[in-house]
Design a protein around this nucleic acid. Structure first.
Length: 501
RNA sequence: GGGUCGGUAGCUCAGCUGGCAGAGCAGGGGACUCUUAAUCCCAAGAUCGAAGGUUCGAAUCCUUCUCGGCCCA
């Protein structure tokens, strides 16, 4: 057990001594700092600027600062100790001199451990070697760290430990901090994009009496007082469209959805989705909106519309290319799903494609497999895959000239699907028939089939204006923009198998 | 589900065709007032993922299991 480790025992013993001497670090409630590490550096540079070419007299030009953070390195030279203090803004070097600080405070300082949280006051200056530094005149321990940190040079490499103890990952791996800062910038850009266009940000239920808005299996939970089962949402779609019916003409939501499916490099059971709906707009408008949104996110993350993903140079410069779903599959594996309707017929057409066991696959599943296997990996530059068959698009509006197809698109970048969008189906009669077809598919074993939602149909019968909607897999877009190849690198606490066993 | 690579000290990693379990960092003791992956000296730290097998002898070879990475389905 780690708790018996020698290093932990040493640190606990130090803590006990502090408590016995009336210096319990955990009794400290607050610490007023005057400067972050970055502010100290900036002010040192400003002092140098003011002094011009003259030699700096730091005794005169130095200034008093109070900083706080985590001790990340100690270089003990006997009567002089150099230490690195890290805070949210960066790092600043501390210097403790035995003569300058006094014997007691100096000895106590040398007793600190890497990982301890301290506050310190002193004179800011730059060393002869050029390092911005605070010469300590006073310091205090604000929290004792009882466990040793991972190695300072290589950081934490163990993938499982990095995710299970993400705090350690963040403490010792600076590039991880950077990725999540970029994630935050991307989401901030997304909000301002919609806010600038007069969209209203809303929150809708995560616990729903009936799930819908996507084809996926849900998680189930139970409310005790109401004594009813509830589903964790797989999408916010049907609630957002209720709001459009209610007259909120432009709405968006950024939030978590939950899908009860496998976990791999591109799937986490809970992930962040963005959905937006715009009354009186269609899927062509949504393509433009989607392009603009991703471009603004890219600029926020990378400062550019160009980026590299898996050695591919990708440009987000609009307009993005478009390909018809059925045309693309007719070209690549050479199956014309537009000419095939039955499940058996589809299986025959795919017989030579080495798609594995097809006995459970219906027409829609095989179309999906063909696309995922032969077409999606080739869509490196941003591409809208358009015009999905009505059978696999139960919430999308039909194309007027080709009613077997819908006004729907899925954007693909770097070979990955990053969203789904369409002109929303607003005919409640057609919607009921689509739901009924889904229920039939469910009865035939399709576990991801959409359930029939009477409450949503009731809302639709009051009148949903013609509306365009988009959904985006936010984590996936951030993954692409940051060059990560695993979703878990952009989710702070990805789902893992429980520890032990 | 299949293939493949891996699990060795708190952390990062060596350990070859079987022959005393190693280093660096961190930690302990000591020296050192411009260091910054500080440096130098000393001592300590291991159920080698688990179980079985082969062998005089297994971290190493074999089998099974387990956990994880990557690739494929």
């Amino acid at each position: 057990m780690a708790s018996d480790d020698e290093q932990v025992r040493n640190r606990k013993a130090k803590l006990d001594h502090l408590k016995d001497a009336g210096n319990d670090p955990f009794a400290v409630h607050r610490f007023p700092r005057t400067h972050t590490s970055a502010q100290v550096v900036t002010q040192i540079e400003a002092a140098e600027e003011a002094a011009g070419d003259a030699d700096m007299d730091w005794d005169a030009a130095g200034f008093e600062v109070t900083v706080c953070g985590r001790l990340m390195a100690m270089r003990d030279q006997g009567k002089s100790i150099w230490a690195d203090l890290h805070d949210d803004a960066g790092k600043i070097q501390l210097w403790a001199g035995k003569k300058q600080l006094g014997d007691d405070a100096f000895d106590a300082f040398s007793d600190l451990d890497i990982g301890d949280i301290i506050g310190a006051t002193g004179h800011a200056f730059r060393t002869r070697r050029g390092e911005p530094t605070v010469e300590l005149s006073e310091w205090r321990l604000l929290a004792k760290s009882l466990r040793p940190l991972p190695e300072k040079f290589h950081g934490l490499q163990d993938i499982q430990l990095r995710y299970r103890r993400r705090y350690l990952d963040l403490i010792v791996n600076p590039d991880v901090r950077e990725i999540f800062a970029r994630r935050t910038a991307a989401i901030r850009a997304m909000r301002s994009f919609f806010d600038d266009r007069d969209f209203q940000e809303v929150t809708t239920p995560m616990m729903q009496p009936l799930y819908g808005g996507a084809n996926a299996r849900p998680f189930t939970t139970h409310h005790n007082t109401l004594d009813m089962d509830l589903y964790l949402r797989i999408a916010p779609e049907l609630y957002l469209k209720r709001l459009v019916i209610g007259g909120l003409e432009r709405v968006y939501e950024i939030g978590r959805v939950f899908r009860n499916e496998g976990i791999d490099a591109l799937h986490n059971p809970e992930f962040t989705i963005m959905e937006a709906y715009m009354a009186y707009a269609d899927y062509e408008d949504m393509m433009e909106l989607f392009e603009g949104l991703v471009c603004e996110m890219a600029v926020a993350v990378n400062g550019s519309l160009q980026f590299t993903y898996r050695d591919n140079e990708i440009s987000l410069e609009p307009p993005w290319q478009r390909v018809s779903l059925l045309d693309a599959i007719r070209e690549a594996p050479g199956v014309d799903f537009g000419e095939i309707s039955g499940d058996e017929e589809a299986r025959e057409a795919c017989a030579d494609l080495e798609l594995g066991d097809m006995t459970q696959d219906n027409w829609a599943a095989l179309l999906d497999k063909c696309f995922d296997r032969f077409v999606a990996p080739t869509l490196i530059q941003p591409t809208f895959v358009i015009d999905y068959p009505v059978q696999i698009s139960p919430l999308a509006k039909r194309l007027p000239d080709r009613p077997h197809l819908t006004a729907r698109f899925e954007p693909h970048i770097g070979g990955e699907e990053i969203g789904n969008a369409f002109s929303e189906l607003n005919d409640p009669i057609d919607q009921r028939e689509r739901f009924e077809a889904q229920v039939r598919a469910g009865a035939c074993g399709d576990e991801e089939a959409h359930p029939l939602d009477e409450d949503y149909l009731l809302a639709m019968e009051y009148g949903l204006p013609p509306t365009g909607g988009i959904g985006m897999g936010v984590d996936r877009v951030i993954m692409l923009l940051t060059g990560c190849t695993n979703l878990r690198e952009v989710i702070l606490f990805p789902q893992l198998r429980p520890e032990e066993g």
